[in-house]
Design a protein around this nucleic acid. Structure first.
Lengths: 224, 224
DNA sequence: AACTGTGAACGTGTTCACAGCC
DNA sequence: GGCTGTGAACACGTTCACAGTT
């Protein structure tokens, strides 16, 4: 039916998410049609980039007119798989795990966080909204019995690989790893890393570069 | 003194953070020296990549021997600017902002979260560890008076641009934006985006691609 | 006339492969 | 012998520019 191209670059996929968000804003404003120029402007990109990205998946545009906002939104939703159900568990009920479990934008994108696990027995039974915290030992069975497809790992670093093994054993299909530990997973399980420290360190470096080296703000411990 | 190269690619900078973490692990195990091959293995990269990355900043290696773990760690720390003080504020004391404020890995990397702000007056005065939540109206003055260099924005999307303006007015140098709103900041202010929804959507897409399309798990609402 | 879709040109990052040094 | 540092080759993503469609 549809023709999913062999290999789509990661930057392109990320931008598809961006387009989706732009289309939602346009739709909310009642806009029915948008040119690649307009989409590019709203996304901080070039119009050629927009057209290239979209053309990978088919001919969604109308020459002389642009893209139909509703149609394109539907197409991108389907392409990204957001018309499917992605039951997701979070493992690690610390501050970050709790924040991710309750993160409203995940819900808005159609992701369902269905359970939250933690190694601390004292937390078992507590609730976060309508989700109960469960003991991590149960995660393998729970994933299997509830056909969970995605897992978010937000445990301490040293528990990450063990947890990954546990959810993989339960048949998980994808893992979003918020831990600084690089995980090892078998083929067929998709892995994605979000490293908050790298982001902040990268910001520090970029800020350093952008600063025209006014002396007096050098490294710590520099004598006056 | 040092020779900071004109322009370093973002992927390279990200990997420098990775090398730093690897070197810490090696150091903890008492390893004094590591070849580019070993570093590559631990980082899931190629040895050529490691050598290219490092050679951008100087000749840190010893031919026939490898890299001195302690020396390289010190060099990368300086290059990334982690030997400096980066006083950082968090704006938005919801679950995510609270998690970021208390995130232990930031501290480990030398970042100091010095204040937390929120628009909700009911939160003002509450404490998160030893940090007091302050009214967001005070953020501009606070940033200026305390020479804060970095800001993390974790407010609702519609407040993000206003908050960005406020911290910029206080003289902030870099912003890490956890909001899905693309921010507009003046030249000289470094901006970096972390979009958790894009990460999860990207994982869903990749998982979809990795799945050999067993029928029966199609889109929602598909009839049997 | 307006705007898409796309081959070709370009630029940037990665990998190769080896000369040079320890 | 072991391993780095790096030009050259390569792969990949972006931008250009225009032919083609409405």
């Amino acid at each position: 039916m549809s023709s999913p191209p062999r290999k789509v670059s990661e930057p392109t996929v990320r931008r598809l998410s961006t387009y989706l968000r732009i289309l939602e804003r346009l739709s909310a404003k009642g806009t029915e049609t948008a040119s690649s120029d307009r989409l590019a402007e709203l996304g901080g990109l070039t119009s050629a980039q927009v057209r290239k990205d979209l053309s990978v998946f088919g001919n969604f545009g109308i020459r002389g007119r642009g893209y139909d906002v509703a149609d394109l939104h539907a197409a991108l939703t389907r392409i990204l798989g957001l018309d499917r159900d992605w039951p997701t568990v979070v493992v690690g009920a610390g501050r970050l795990g709790s924040a991710l479990t309750a993160y409203p934008n995940f819900l808005k994108s159609g992701f369902r966080i269905v359970a939250l696990f933690d190694a601390d027995p004292a937390l078992a039974g507590r609730r976060l909204g309508d989700i109960e915290i469960r003991p991590v030992e149960e995660v393998t069975d729970w994933v299997r019995e509830n056909s969970v497809t995605l897992a978010i790992i937000s445990t301490p670093a040293k528990a990450a690989q063990r947890v990954a093994n546990q959810v993989v054993a339960g048949g998980i299909r994808g893992i979003l790893n918020f831990t600084p530990t690089p995980l090892d997973v078998p083929d067929g399980v998709t892995l994605r890393e979000v490293n908050l420290t790298i982001e902040l360190e990268g910001l520090a470096y970029a800020t350093l570069e952008a600063t025209p080296d006014e002396s007096g703000s050098g490294p710590k411990g520099e004598p006056a």
